[in-house]
Design a protein around this nucleic acid. Structure first.
Lengths: 342, 342
DNA sequence: ATTTTTTGTTTAAACGATTAAGCTTACATT
DNA sequence: AATGTAAGCTTAATCGTTTAAACAAAAAAT
C-alpha cells in the first residue's frame, strides 16, 4: 500500500485545474476568490477521495509560522513540571499548536542551548520556566522579537509577560498557619538562589514571623544549593535542630526539598507533626503516602498552564497585544502534618 | 535590533557567488563539489560574520526529513512516563532529533488522534507506548512505512521492533521473593487489560505460586479498570482480605495502582508489612517517603529510553535495518515492605 | 594544434503550498 | 457597436534549501 503522498498538484491534475484553485477551495477562500460552484465541489470531493493531508512543512516555509511552541522547564521528570507540561501540551493542541519540551536542569547554559535549538527549529514562541542567571536569554528574545511568556517564575527587573503564583503570599500563609496552630519556632529550607520566586517565598516566611512578633534566629533560614541538595538538606535540618532555639516546624520551599527533608526526618526517627510540623510547596502523591499527610501549598497548575498558553497564543495572533502579568493564588491544603500543637 | 533573517542568498550576494556554492561549503561538501579554496574560506567567514543559521523548515521541505520524533505515552504526568520522556528527549537531542510528546491517557482514540496530528507534522518516526486496542494504529504505521519502535509494551501477535522489560520474569521474581520471605497468601492487583505486558505480569505472579505449590484462590487476583481505579482498588483490597484465605501480601502491577492501594491501606490502619507485605512495579519518591519503604521492581528506565531512541535512529538512517526486539530485566529492590515474616 | 580532462562555478528545477497579478470569456451598460 | 465590469480561472513568483546538470576556462594529454 501507501502510494506516494498526495499533494495539491495531484488534486489539481485529477480535477483538471490549477493548484491555485485547489488551494483556495481547501482553505475556504472560494468566496473571496470566486471559484465556481461545481468546480469547488468537485475539488473537495477529490481531496476527500485521495485523503489529502496538507504538508505542514511547506505551509510553514511559506507562512513563516510553524504553529509550534517551545516549552522550557527545569526538569520534566519533576512532577510539578510534568503536570505543567501536560496542561500546556493539551491546551496548545486545542489551539492547533504543537509543543516541543526541553529540560534545562536549572542550568542557564543548557537553557541557552535549548533556546537556540528551538529558535532554529523556527518555533513561533516560547513558554519558559527560567533558570537562574538566564536574564540574558530573556533580553535576547525581546531583541529578536520572539514572543514568549514566563511561567512560574519571572524577573522583577525585566518587564515581560508572565504567569506565576503569588509566592510571597503563599509563604506568608504557610507561616501564619503554623503560628496559628501553636508553632513558635519555624524554620524554612529554601534554595540558595537569586530567582525572584525563591526570594519571595523567603520574604513571605520572614514577614509572617515578624508580624506575629516572633523573633527570628539566623539558623532558622537555610538556603541549600541545588546541586548538593541531598547533603545540604541534612545539614540544614541538623543546624535548625541544634539552634539556640530549635525549630518545631519547617516550611520547605519546594517539593524536591521536602522529599529530601522528609527522608532524613524519617531516618532521624522524628515524628511528624509532634516532633516537627511540616508545610511544603509543591504537590505529588508522595505527600499523600506519607504516614502523616503533608500540608502543602497547592499551586493552580491547570490555571497556570492554560493561562500561559492563552497569553502566548494571543500574542502570536496579535503581536501588538499588550503585556500581561498575572499573579495567581496558591491554596494552603491543610492536612495532618501541621496539626494544632497541644 | 534584529535585522532580517540571514539566508543563503544573503551570503551568496555578499560573497559574489551563487547560493549553490554557499550551500556546498556550509554543508562540508567543498571537496566533492570542488569549491575553490579562497572562495570557500571567504564564504565561511561571511557566514560567521552574518551569524547565519540555516532554516530547518526549508531543509525539511527539501529533504522530506524533519529530524523530529513523535513520542506517544500514556500520560506525561505519571512519573514513570515523565522519566521515560526525559531520557528519550535527551538522547534524541544527542542524535540531532527533536521530540514531540503526546499523552494518550491509555485511550486508543486519543492515541489515534495524536498519531495523525504528528504524521501530518511530518515526524520522521515514532516511539510509542501503546494503549489497549491500538493494534490498528500499529498496522497503519507499518502500512505507511513509517518507522517506529514500541516501548514498554508490545503486541505478541504483531511483529514489530520493541524495547520492553521482561514482565513475566519481573513478576515471577516478586512472587518468589515474597514466598521466600515467608508469605503464603499473596494477592495481585492488576489492570483489566488485554495488553501483553499486563498479561505477562499476571502470568509471572501465577507461576511463582504454582512453582511453590501454593494453591491459588480466585480472590487473590484482582483486575481493576483504569477509569475506575480509585473505587475498584478499594474493592479489590476488601475482596482479598475477606477471601476464604485472606492475603498477607499484595503485589501491585503498576505504580498508580500502588499509590491508590497504599492510601487505602493507610486508611484501614493496616501496618505494612506486619499486616500486609507489599511489592510493586514502578518507582518514585512516593515509595521512599512511605513510613516503610516499599519493595519495588526497578525498570531500567534509562536503558529502555536510550535503546528505543537508538533503535529508531538506526532505522531512520537505514530503513533496511532488520527488526529488533529487546527484553530487559527489571531489578527487584528489596526494602522494608516485604521484610521477612516472623 | 587539437582534443580531452579537470577544475571551478552557475543555472535551474525541485520540495509543497500560497497568493498577487494577469488573462479570458461572458455579460451588462452606454 | 463599443466599452466596462464581473466571474472564473491560470501564471508565476515566493518561502530557503539542495543538487543534478550545464557551462566555461584552464590544464593535461594527444
Amino acid at each position: 500500500m501507501s502510494k506516494k503522498k498526495v499533494s495539491l498538484k495531484d488534486i489539481a491534475q485529477k480535477a483538471g485545474v490549477s493548484t491555485a484553485l485547489v488551494s483556495y477551495v481547501l482553505n475556504g477562500k472560494e468566496k473571496e476568490s470566486r471559484v465556481g460552484q461545481e468546480i469547488a465541489a468537485s475539488i473537495k470531493k477529490i481531496a476527500e477521495e485521495l485523503n489529502y493531508q496538507p504538508n505542514y512543512v511547506a505551509k510553514s516555509l511559506r507562512s513563516g509560522k510553524t504553529h509550534t511552541i517551545g516549552l522550557i522547564i527545569a526538569d520534566i521528570s519533576n512532577p510539578f513540571f510534568a503536570n505543567i507540561a501536560r496542561i500546556v501540551e493539551d491546551e496548545a493542541r486545542n489551539h492547533g499548536f504543537t509543543v516541543i519540551i526541553g529540560s534545562s536542569d536549572e542550568n542557564a547554559d543548557k537553557s541557552w542551548n535549548l533556546l537556540n535549538v528551538l529558535i532554529h527549529r523556527q518555533v513561533d514562541g516560547f513558554i519558559i520556566v527560567s533558570s537562574e542567571n538566564s536574564e540574558k536569554q530573556i533580553y535576547h528574545l525581546k531583541d529578536k522579537h520572539i514572543p514568549f511568556v514566563l511561567l512560574d517564575r519571572h524577573f522583577s527587573e525585566i518587564q515581560t509577560d508572565f504567569v506565576t503564583v503569588n509566592n510571597y503570599k503563599a509563604s506568608y500563609d504557610a507561616g501564619t498557619h503554623l503560628i496559628q496552630h501553636g508553632y513558635q519556632s519555624i524554620g524554612m529550607i529554601a534554595y540558595k538562589s537569586q530567582l525572584f520566586h525563591m526570594k519571595e517565598r523567603i520574604r513571605g516566611y520572614l514577614h509572617s514571623l515578624k508580624e506575629n512578633d516572633i523573633s527570628f534566629y539566623d539558623n532558622w533560614l537555610q538556603e541549600v544549593r541545588f546541586n548538593y541538595i541531598k547533603k545540604e538538606v541534612k545539614l540544614a535540618i541538623d543546624a535548625m535542630r541544634s539552634s539556640e532555639q530549635p525549630v518545631d516546624a519547617i516550611i520547605f520551599a519546594t517539593y524536591g526539598l521536602a522529599v529530601n527533608g522528609l527522608k532524613y526526618i524519617n531516618a532521624l526517627h522524628l515524628k511528624v507533626p509532634t516532633d516537627l510540623a511540616i508545610v511544603s510547596f509543591g504537590q505529588a502523591e508522595g505527600f499523600d503516602l506519607y504516614y502523616c499527610p503533608i500540608t502543602y501549598l497547592r499551586q493552580p497548575i491547570e490555571d497556570l498552564g492554560k493561562t500561559a498558553v492563552e497569553l502566548l497564543v494571543k500574542k502570536l495572533k496579535n503581536p501588538e497585544q499588550g503585556m500581561q502579568q498575572i499573579l495567581m493564588e496558591a491554596k494552603l491544603m491543610i492536612r495532618d502534618s501541621s496539626r494544632r500543637k497541644n
